[in-house]
């Protein structure tokens, strides 16, 4: 039951994100959507991911977005400045794809639950021990990927400084 509540909230908030002209409101609705997703992660027995989602996504990345929105003070989106022409054939292909995807989604939902058995929650590590298990897997099996990630962050940091700084 909670799943449908959080899911509906996430979808509604995401729709509001792209339905807003004001980027400030978009950012705020995205935060609401993240909160709903964090609730879903708790339902999926992943409390650590839920908390990380709030701390890093909502608490750090989105503050960065807000910061830029405030800094640029970029007001409403202008729609009429540049017209984008879409060829009719492109539209037809797009419409076809929409129909195909919707049909697929409907089919998947219609046949759902026939052969799906979740692994029971008993054998899984929960709460704090799930954090421990996460740490062990991350630093043993994924140690190389973890180290590469640090290089990625370093490069991103350098790139951000070089791009945004007026003169070096």
């Amino acid at each position: 039951m909670l799943f449908y509540l959080f899911g509906a909230a996430a979808v509604a908030a995401s729709l509001m994100v792209i339905g807003q002209r004001n980027p400030m409101y978009s950012v705020l609705f995205l935060i609401a959507s993240f909160a709903a997703l964090a609730g879903l992660y708790v339902l999926l027995d992943a409390p650590f991911v839920a908390v990380i989602q709030i701390i890093i996504y909502a608490g750090a990345i989105m503050v960065l977005f807000l910061f830029v929105v405030m800094l640029l003070n970029a007001p409403q989106e202008d729609i009429s400045r540049v017209r984008v022409m879409v060829a009719p054939s492109t539209r037809r292909i797009g419409a076809l794809l929409v129909v195909v995807l919707l049909a697929e989604l409907a089919w998947a939902l219609a046949t759902a639950g026939e052969r799906e058995v979740w692994v029971s929650a008993e054998g899984l590590p929960e709460g704090e021990s799930s954090v421990r298990a996460l740490g062990l897997t991350l630093f043993r099996d994924y140690a190389f990927a973890f180290e590469v990630t640090s290089v990625l962050i370093l490069v991103a940091m350098l790139g951000a400084v070089v791009l945004a700084k007026r003169e070096l």
Binding site: F48, V51, I54, A58, G59, A60, G127
Partner: peptide, 14 residues
């Protein structure tokens, strides 16, 4: 909550 410290940190960051 058994991940209490993290929850405090998360709420504080909001």
């Amino acid at each position: 909550i058994n991940v209490g410290v993290l929850v405090i940190f998360a709420i504080a960051s909001m």
